[in-house]
Simulated assay, not measured.
Amino acid sequence: MRGTCPSRTADRRTTVSQKAKGWLLAIAALAGVWLIRNGADTQVVPPGPTAAQSFADGPVPQPGSLLAAPLKPSAPVRLRIPSIRVDAPVTRLGLGPGGRLDVPPAENRNVVGWYKDGTPPGSEGSAIMAGHVDNAEGRSVFYDLGALRRGSTVEVVRQDGRTAVFSLDAVEVYENDAFPDKRVYGAAPFASLRLITCGGGFSKATGYQGNVVAYAHLTAVR
């Protein structure tokens, strides 16, 4: 995974995790670059996570953490992260022409995308959701993702009327040429949630140089 938030097509025969990966890369291609392309004079770099918010022993909850029993699959309809004032609808994304994974509309700054054939948040496995960090108008839904701290609450309202409540385990930033595919997209034996946006350094020529990833696990259901 090299370059700056590249987009690429997804082969319809690939696994769900590979398709999800391609979709997230496609989303990243629209984030950040627009500000430069549309003539903004300045670029305000979004907050990034500190080393203190990283995992100590890999993408698993800390020993003794509360783990709620996974739910039956049900599509997400809304995402809330109170500490960074996120309250956004969720749009379902599929495959477009040529097998390319669709992305949320760039002009909508308050929407989160979920690959409709992937793991639903709250179910066993790694649910992947992503959003733009900014667009031509300014900050977008995941602008402050890098400011999250361990223990922060993430709520996903589901189509079945239940709200899956997650606790944040870590927030990490990766350069494009060192993106840990297995760490981010790997399966989990519990209900896991990964939130992704662009981040890292910024270049006017190529846009953001990496990705910010927030990891969380299911702790309660309402």
Rank of each mutant, 00 (worst) to 15 (best):
A136C: 05
D160R: 03
D181R: 07
A188P: 07
R139S: 09
G138F: 10
E172H: 02
E175F: 05
A170K: 09
F179G: 03
R158G: 11
E137Q: 15
A147G: 06
G151N: 13
N176A: 13
R183E: 14
G151F: 11
R139E: 15
V171H: 06
A188Q: 15
G138E: 12
V173C: 09
A147S: 13
D177Y: 14
R194C: 00
G146I: 00
L145H: 04
F179L: 10
L193R: 01
L193P: 01
A164S: 03
A191I: 05
D169K: 05
S167K: 12
A188N: 14
R139F: 02
V141D: 05
K182W: 01
E172T: 06
F142N: 05
V156W: 00
V157Y: 09
Q159P: 08
A188W: 05
S140V: 09
Y143G: 00
E175M: 07
P180G: 10
Y185F: 14
V156T: 01
G146K: 04
D177V: 10
A136P: 10
T163Q: 11
R194G: 00
F142P: 02
V154W: 00
A178H: 12
V184D: 05
Y174M: 02
G161L: 14
V165Q: 09
S192Q: 12
E172Y: 00
L168G: 04
G186K: 12
T163I: 15
V141L: 08
A188D: 08
D169C: 06
Y185I: 06
R183S: 10
V154K: 03
E172D: 13
R183P: 00
A178E: 09
V154H: 00
D177W: 15
L193M: 04
Q159H: 10
R158E: 12
A187T: 14
A187P: 13
T153E: 11
F190P: 02
Y174T: 00
N176Q: 15
R158D: 12
F166K: 02
V165M: 10
Y185G: 01
G186I: 08
R150E: 14
V156D: 01
V156G: 00
G186P: 03
V165H: 05
V165A: 10
A164K: 00
E175Q: 13
A188S: 15
V171F: 05
L145Q: 07
D177G: 13
G161R: 06
S167W: 03
N135F: 07
R139V: 08
L145N: 03
L168C: 11
V173Y: 04
K182E: 13
A147Q: 03
K182N: 08
F166I: 00
N135A: 09
S192M: 08
A191N: 03
S192N: 13
A191G: 06
A147N: 05
A164G: 06
F142R: 02
A170M: 10
V171T: 15
V173S: 09
R194M: 00
D169Q: 08
Y143K: 00
R183H: 08
S140M: 08
R158N: 13
L168Y: 02
D144E: 10
R150T: 14
L193G: 01
V154G: 04
G151T: 12
R158T: 11
L193C: 10
E155A: 10
